[in-house]
Design a protein around this nucleic acid. Structure first.
Length: 494
DNA sequence: TTTTGAGTTGTTCGA
DNA sequence: GTCGAACAACTCAAA
């Protein structure tokens, strides 16, 4: 732990009043610079989480995220209790809640780790200014990114819009500091401020409880994140470059929700991967995926309209279809294309979808159904446990073809070819579309082409047990290319 | 200022 | 089955 991230300077005063550690998307003890800063010098610490839904702007947490947040807060509270600490819960506008806790505890400082989404960053800037104006020390730190968005700039001084030069610049910049150890101890305050009960926040679904699949698939919390990392390092990293596109194999890290909630930090992942496999193809490829996460945050920070507006304004003229039935079929995994439906079922059941299948499913919504990418973005936001404003917005824009760095519009995934290539034995489809489980692999990705006897033998009645394709691939492809041509014919005609 | 090389992840068609 | 070309220019980033 050769770097201190500046926390000693920040908190070097001899003030013996409590410091408030304001937890947000950094729900961990290790590599948490704000937490170390709050506890420095044995200063008493009040650990606080504020549920500030209005502070998230247009993007309050979706259903799956709320489930994860509950589980993660419970895990963090337990970890803190083992240190003789508590996690105090409040809800409401963050500034008001912080002021109350400052007043109740006599705290002289508030510290937190930075967020970069437009609404949160704007709120945090105001919080910092108001606290300082009230005579309370306020300091923020970086726990969430390897390279903060303003530290990476092109030769011209602007932000990057293309991934490859961005990541090259990152790798040429000063290396991220080594991860910090968790605090050995955190002094308790003389008295605890009152807190709300986590259960009262109703973050968990009830009537119906649809979270059974999430509980089976995930272990939210810092320990769960570490276990996931260790397992990936031992079982996944070496073969990652080759197997990462295979949704039928357990080849990816599945760290995305843990990273989103800050149960593990990118510096910890970066250091562990480098220590194990520096220079190997698997490590390079995996670090590049961390790089994409960095790039998405870079884009959102510099282009705050990213979640709602086309990155390229000419896409404002795109003739999106109004197709509620198609959108509904896509959401429910009833498109008739097995790889798409399998992905949507995996998402609905586990709150997660393999990256390759996300691209296929997103491409299908946008290009086969011509439905506005923002509809897909909203559905993912509600259903993904790793829903992250930067990653979600940038990825949907990328698939839609609206970014400078995006897939060319004529690159339209063929869901049959993609399924056969990346789920060659049909294992993934069989798992998530059990109606088709007994169909031979040769027909699994195109059941409508299977001979009647094969379908009957597999117990599949098309149109009854499993839908026929809601669009014909070749026709849909042509329609999408025509729509793209139409958009280009009337530039700026929004 | 101009030039130049490059840009995550594909598909289809015809030889 | 395999291979190369066409698909479409356009913007970005750096020299």
């Amino acid at each position: 732990m050769n770097q201190d991230h500046g926390y000693r300077e920040a908190m070097s005063g001899r003030d013996s009043s409590p410091a408030i550690m304001w937890f947000r998307q950094d729900l961990r003890l290790a590599d948490n610079p704000a937490l170390l800063a709050s506890a420095a010098g044995g200063r008493p610490v009040v650990c606080l989480y504020v549920l500030d839904e209005a502070g998230e702007g247009d993007w309050p947490a979706g259903g799956a995220s709320r489930w994860w947040l509950h589980m993660s807060l419970a895990a963090l509270a337990e970890s803190l209790e083992r240190l003789g600490q508590r996690l105090v819960l409040r809800r409401g506008p963050a500034l008001a809640a912080l002021r109350e806790v400052v007043s109740e505890t006599g705290a002289g400082a508030v510290v937190w780790n930075r967020r970069y989404e437009p609404a949160a960053a704007t709120r945090d800037a105001r919080v910092k200014a108001e606290l300082k104006a009230a005579g309370v020390a306020a300091e923020s730190f970086n726990a969430a990114l390897l390279f903060e968005p303003w530290t990476i700039r092109t030769g011209g001084g602007g932000p990057y819009k293309v991934f490859t030069p961005f990541w090259r610049a990152c790798l040429g910049a000063p290396a991220p500091p080594a991860p910090l150890a968790p605090p050995a101890s955190i002094a308790a305050p003389p008295a605890w401020p009152a807190g709300e009960a986590l259960d009262d926040w109703r973050l968990l679904p009830r009537a119906p409880d649809w979270a059974g699949g999430l509980r089976r698939a995930w272990t939210p919390g810092e320990a769960g994140a570490q276990a996931r990392l260790q397992r990936f390092l031992s079982e996944g990293l070496e073969g990652y470059a080759a197997a990462r596109d295979r949704p039928d194999l357990p080849a990816t890290s599945r760290l995305s929700p843990h990273l989103h909630f800050g149960e593990i930090g990118p510096r910890q992942v970066f250091a562990a991967v480098q220590a194990l496999g520096a220079g190997s193809p698997g490590a390079e490829k995996f670090l590049q995926e961390l790089g994409w996460r960095e790039f998405c945050h870079h884009l959102l920070f510099h282009f705050p309209a990213l979640p709602a507006a086309n990155f390229r304004a000419e896409f404002d003229a795109f003739p999106w279809a109004d197709d509620p039935a198609g959108l509904d079929a896509w959401r429910r995994g009833r498109t008739g294309y097995p790889i798409v439906d399998a992905g949507m079922a995996e998402l609905w059941t586990t709150g997660w979808m393999h990256n390759r299948v996300r691209m296929i499913a997103a491409s299908f919504l946008i290009k086969h159904l011509l439905i506005d990418w923002r509809q897909g973005e909203a559905w993912f936001w509600d259903t993904l446990v790793d829903a992250d404003l930067a990653n979600n917005a940038a990825s949907w824009q990328w698939v839609a073809g609206g970014g400078a760095d995006a897939a060319p519009y004529f690159r339209i995934f063929n869901p049959v070819a993609q399924g056969e290539k990346f789920d060659p034995n049909g294992t993934y489809v069989r798992r998530w579309v059990p109606e088709l489980a007994r169909l031979p692999a040769a027909w699994l990705h195109k059941p409508w082409d299977a001979p009647a006897a094969v379908l009957a033998g597999a117990g599949v009645r098309l149109g009854t047990d499993y839908p026929r394709p809601i669009v014909d691939h070749a026709k849909a492809r042509k329609r999408a290319l025509d729509a793209f041509a139409a958009m280009k014919d009337r530039p700026g005609a929004a």
